[in-house]
């Protein structure tokens, strides 16, 4: 059996000494490795049609009809579609990302990841990339539906800024997701309540289906902590240029800066929490599946 007989190179001590390039490449590859099951597992269950296409379509439609019944101005339908598309990412972050490490712990994967030579942050990052790619289908479906079925038209002056804000929003969202992920392992069941807390009002409050600017100053301030709210507000301003009038929120350039701050802060905090997690695991033995 040749695979077992492969001659190992050098000595254990030489094999344990990796240069910077090797460390970097290993971490880079582990991002791709961890993203893989997300991306390739997605379309394997037939239920994906339901979850990725039908449900997003239905929820978006429902909101469109509500707004029409309320005789809201037509741009609002555009807001709904944009909000609906971004919900895909938000739900992915609070439901899948946040609970992911907790689940990985039960599965025994977390120990293997910690015991592997790469930084746990790369694994977490791969998880985020996978989730992001996976949710993109859903988001794209909602946008397409909005444009084709409900005839939403976007008037964009600054494509570059819009794209930038979009990617910054994703960075902040998935930064938050990575942070929540470690928090869940630390908090266990308590953290489920946090998700519930984030889920319900967020539909409404983050401006997913309702423009933040209409909430007044305090309301807007409260939800500004949620990256989705900031990102969406900026994207609305950019995607429906001129149609909105004064919104009472900062201009998109400022919101982009806020998003940069959020992305950096959340990602940094995710890293800090992973460190805490690993320290607790090694000191208190709290990483194993069998011992909560």
């Amino acid at each position: 059996m040749s695979a077992l007989a492969r001659p190992a190179a050098g000595t254990p001590q030489a094999d344990a000494a990796w240069d910077r390039r090797r460390v970097f490449l290993a971490n880079l590859r582990s991002v791709g490795g961890r993203a893989y099951p997300r991306v390739h597992g997605l379309f394997r269950e037939p239920s994906w049609v339901l979850f990725e296409i039908l449900l997003p379509f239905l929820t978006t439609s429902a909101f469109v009809f509500v707004y029409r019944a309320l005789q809201a101005p037509p741009e609002y339908v555009g807001f709904v579609v944009l909000g609906g598309a971004m919900t895909a990412f938000w739900l992915n972050v609070i439901w899948m990302m946040a609970a992911q490490l907790y689940w990985e712990k039960d599965q025994g994967n977390l120990e293997l990841y910690f015991a592997s030579p790469v930084d746990m942050m790369s694994v977490l990052f791969g998880m985020a990339v996978g989730g992001l790619i996976m949710s993109s289908t859903r988001a794209a479906v909602v946008l397409a539906v909005g444009a084709v079925v409900y005839g939403v038209t976007f008037t964009v002056d600054q494509w570059g800024l819009l794209l930038l804000v979009f990617f910054l929003t994703l960075a902040a969202l998935y930064g938050l997701g990575m942070m929540l992920s470690s928090l869940f392992v630390l908090w266990g069941r308590e953290a489920w309540h946090l998700t519930q807390l984030l889920q319900e009002p967020v539909y409404f409050v983050s401006g997913l289906n309702f423009p933040v600017g209409r909430l007044g100053f305090l309301g807007a301030l409260a939800v500004a902590l949620i990256p989705l709210a900031v990102g969406l507000d900026a994207m609305r301003q950019l995607a429906f240029a001129g149609a909105l009038g004064p919104t009472g929120t900062p201009p998109p350039e400022i919101e982009a800066l806020i998003l940069v701050g959020m992305a950096v802060t959340f990602t940094w905090m995710a890293r800090v929490m992973l460190r805490i997690l690993e320290r607790l695991a090694r000191e208190k033995g709290r990483l194993s599946a069998r011992w909560r």
Binding site: A26, R29, G32, G33, R34, P37, G41, E45, Q107, Y113
Partner: peptide
Amino acid sequence: EQSGYGILTVREQLWMFSQFYGLGR
């Protein structure tokens, strides 16, 4: 041990793990 992801094939799962040890694609 129940490690990995049930939805992957044997080949895919092992490949995924190989990436955590820095093997090239």
